[in-house]
Amino acid sequence: MIAYLVTIATLVSIAVLIAMALNVQWGMCGMVNFGLAGFVALGAYTTAILTLAGWPALFAVAASVVVCAVMGGLLSLISMRLSEDYLAIVTLGFGEIVRLVTLNEGWLTGGALGLPGIPRPLVETIGSENYETAFLAGAVLIVAIVYFGLERLTRSPVGAALRAVRDDDLVASSLGRNVLLLRVKAFALGGGITAIAGSLQAFQFSYIDPSQFTAIMTAYAFMAVIAGGRGSHRGLILGACSIMFLLEASRFLKDVIEVLDNAQIAAIRLILIGAGLILLLIFRPQGLMREYRLSAPRATAATAPPPTGKE
């Protein structure tokens, strides 16, 4: 049971990272990304291929972050002249390209058979007995670092500028903000975060194949961000955990309700998620949490004297 929970928690950490990437790109900056799973796959494959080639894990992950960030930047750059709807199509296309490449370029990616035997980092040092728990701790640590980094970004003028670009790019531009640059950077940052998620996934299973990176991965990220409240990092963690809880807890339904067979239970699990999301959107359309807003006392309390009443 403990091993099961540890595995689930690790998977939640990966899902949270993917949702955070989406939250930066779409939640904060308004750029939809339906190719999220493709980015995760790109990150996972880059890390896997490099570690299999003998690179140390850290360098492989760093390279994979760079690859995904550059790819994200390029993708947003080429679709910059298109409106949001078209970015959806471009990213969808990107996801599909990644899937087809991983499936067909067998010399590089192992094709449908995938890449087995990805060496897991520090496995000799930690030993196999407690490795899963240590891996979870590492994953949670990474989530925490990314979370605090993103919170700092969100609570800064940069975060406000990203939200301004999302709400009305002409206004943001008229106020001196370089909209193009902000968009490209936000998309690249999201790309980098998906690479970390993909790398974790590659190390977690020490095996990857194209079927791990399907559209459902993208869908879960959207669900987490929407349920959590668009723009709120805390909210999406809650959202991702709720979704995983519904998915996993409903596994045990079959012990309670004996008339249902396994296939019916599997269907019910997805129905539960769907119903949960619909109920949430009816009763709390803004999501579980509100995105951060700067308030005057909070902003001045830190360092500056109170405003003096005269210009």
Binding site: P157, A160, L294, S295
Partner: peptide
């Protein structure tokens, strides 16, 4: 910018 506070509108 309707989802930003007045203060954030200016700080931008």
């Amino acid at each position: 910018l309707s989802s930003l506070t007045l203060l954030e509108n200016l700080l931008l």
